[in-house]
Design a protein around this nucleic acid. Structure first.
Length: 259
DNA sequence: ATGCCTCCCCGAGGGAGA
């Protein structure tokens, strides 16, 4: 089963790219972030015509996540547990059944800039809630994954120019420590399990010709439970998507699981 | 040193992104 994560930076602006990439890539499941759309305005029909089931958790203008799946999606839940007052649409879960069940958690982690400040406080609090959900996933001892735009640069080799990011919410020591606290519960960073090389990025800024200079960062990640990691066949980044017409600033990353 | 693009809202120009 091939499962991708893709921050599309607006479904209306990216529907065309997405509709050509889905058949090309042969993904079974696509976890989308930043749909920037309310559920009612998500253009479901063209994706359903390609054979995908569509589950969305959107909001007006900002954020918003969605799951496209060729297999039926079961037990869909919306919103990260732990704060009923949180109105930002950044988390959706569902189960797909292959040769066995796989729980999918699709996340759009807060950016957190400027740091310090209330936005950074929100990011760290959100990561603490995420850690609680992650712990419960491990307790189940089943194949599960948490994937999406984590807005975390885990290590210096995950940035072309790490010094530029030293004061940034994506790379501050406290951010990286919070990410490690989740990872060290017992998850596998799927990309690093497959490829340890530097210069592998998933985001390049629109400005300053970042793409042409490969001035990128690796911030889109797949974290696998041990039972999912046992099934990992491959994990790759579709970096060619950044060079297409009217691209997102992120590109897809995908895993192939033997399930 | 610097938000230099691109998206959203909508129908001007500001907020957000990372």
């Amino acid at each position: 089963m091939k499962i991708a994560s893709f921050n599309i930076n607006g479904i209306k602006a990216r529907a065309e790219r997405l509709l050509e990439w889905l058949p090309e890539s042969g993904v079974d499941v696509a976890l989308l972030q930043e749909i920037k759309s309310i559920d009612a305005n998500f253009p479901r029909a063209p994706f359903e015509d390609l054979g995908f089931n569509v589950e969305t958790f959107g909001q007006k203008s900002f954020n918003g996540v969605a799951i496209l799946s060729k297999l039926p999606l079961e037990d869909v839940t919306r919103g990260l547990p732990g704060d009923d007052s949180d109105e930002q649409a950044r988390w959706i879960e569902a189960t797909v059944i292959g040769t066995r069940a796989l729980r999918l958690c699709n996340l759009y982690l807060p950016n957190g800039n400027p740091a310090p400040g209330p936005k950074y406080d929100y990011k760290l609090a959100w990561m603490e809630r995420l850690r609680n959900r992650a712990r419960d996933l491990l307790t189940a001892e089943e194949p599960a994954l948490m994937a999406g735009d984590w807005n975390v640069i885990p290590q210096p080799e995950d940035a072309h120019n790490p010094d530029k990011w030293r004061e940034d919410a994506l790379f501050l020591p406290e951010t990286r420590a919070a990410f490690r606290r989740i990872l060290n519960l017992g998850f596998t960073d799927a990309f690093r399990a497959i490829d340890q090389a530097p210069l592998n990025y998933t985001f390049w800024d629109f400005q300053r010709g970042a793409w042409n200079r490969n001035d990128g960062i690796r911030i889109d990640h797949f974290l696998l439970t041990p039972q999912a990691a046992d099934l990992l066949r491959d994990c790759r980044i579709d970096r060619h998507m950044r060079g297409r017409e009217r691209p997102s600033d992120h590109v897809p990353i995908w895993v192939d699981l033997e399930i």
